[in-house]
């Protein structure tokens, strides 16, 4: 029972993180291998904020989200747009993006190492037990869960109930056709990329409440987010949310029944299964 609850608590944060990547990969069509580093940067920022001010890490969101939005907007404008212009076809763009963001991830790790050093960091916030169905759980996990759910819901409503959200979804379905109905595709893509980065960094803020992290952990989260997005089907945000909970459950199961050091193996197992059985994802549409 506690495996299921911890898995669900973890899944909500994963969902947030995967929604960030979904915006970048599904809408802006940029395979961002530096996504996990953005998450870790959010976590580091929160650590710094919390140890300096001792205020609730939730307040860190107020600073981290706009900052990450601005940074990712700049990354898209400065680094990605030249690649989009240079690319002769989608395949070339994909290769260039993978290489550029791979390099970017090392730069971000380098900056984090230079600023914070290479140690494992964690801070103690709301480290009190809370009882759910008679079992104790960390209150910080529950707080992060609620925070993630609120942000996920907000993002979902924004995407499905507002005009900018509609524009983003249109671009994700077909960029060329979206241009025909007078959507500024470049702007929408930049917005999606920046928003995706901001959401990912917010995921990092929430994750830092209950997780020990260091500068080199980013790649693991990039991988998890990618696996979730593929598992859910690239085109559907609901699939990503479902997949995030599946991954959360799978990891918690492996961690508590086999070994906590094997969580990545659990993620890979899911990845293998989806590749072999349903490459288009749980809720994805099979392309011709």
């Amino acid at each position: 029972m506690d495996i299921i609850i911890i898995g669900l608590l973890l899944g909500a944060t994963y969902a947030l993180m995967a929604m960030g990547l979904q915006l970048q990969y599904g809408v802006a069509r940029i395979m961002n291998l530096a996504n996990g580093e953005m998450l870790i940067a959010g976590a580091f920022g929160t650590f710094w904020f919390y140890t300096a001010s001792n205020a609730s890490p939730f307040y860190a969101l107020i600073g981290v989200i706009p900052l990450a939005f601005a940074v990712n907007w700049a990354i898209y404008r400065v680094l990605i747009v030249p690649l989009v212009r240079r690319a002769r076809n989608q395949g070339q763009l994909e290769v260039d993006c993978i290489l550029a963001t791979f390099g970017l991830s090392f730069i971000l790790v380098g900056i984090l190492l230079a600023v914070f050093g290479g140690e494992y960091l964690s801070y103690s916030y709301l480290a009190r037990p809370i009882f759910i169905l008679g079992e104790p759980y960390g209150l910080n996990r529950v707080a992060a869960f609620i925070g993630s759910l609120v942000l996920c819901l907000g993002l979902y409503l924004w995407l499905h109930r507002t005009r900018p959200g509609l524009a983003l979804r249109a671009v994700s379905v077909n960029p060329a056709a979206a241009g025909l109905v007078s959507i500024n595709v470049t702007r929408a893509s930049a917005l999606a990329f920046a928003l995706g980065g901001a959401v990912t960094a917010a995921g990092g803020v929430l994750l830092s409440m209950f997780l020990t992290f260091d500068a080199s952990l980013g790649v693991v989260f990039t991988l998890k987010a990618l696996i979730i997005v593929i598992l859910g089907g690239v085109s559907d945000i609901r699939g990503a949310i479902l997949a995030a909970f599946i991954l959360g459950l799978a990891e918690t199961t492996v961690a508590s029944l086999v070994d906590p050091g094997l969580t990545l193996a659990a993620a890979y197992l899911l990845f293998m299964a989806i590749l072999l059985v349903r490459p288009e994802g749980l809720l994805g549409r099979r392309s011709s």
């Binding site: 260039d96 290489l99 390099g103 730069i107 380098g110």
Partner: peptide, 19 residues
């Protein structure tokens, strides 16, 4: 101390300027 940062920067320079 800055190997990671410099490596990343070198990587980007190569991707952008010597494709």
């Amino acid at each position: 101390a800055q190997t990671t940062l410099l490596l990343g920067a070198a990587f980007l320079l190569i991707v952008y300027f010597i494709p």
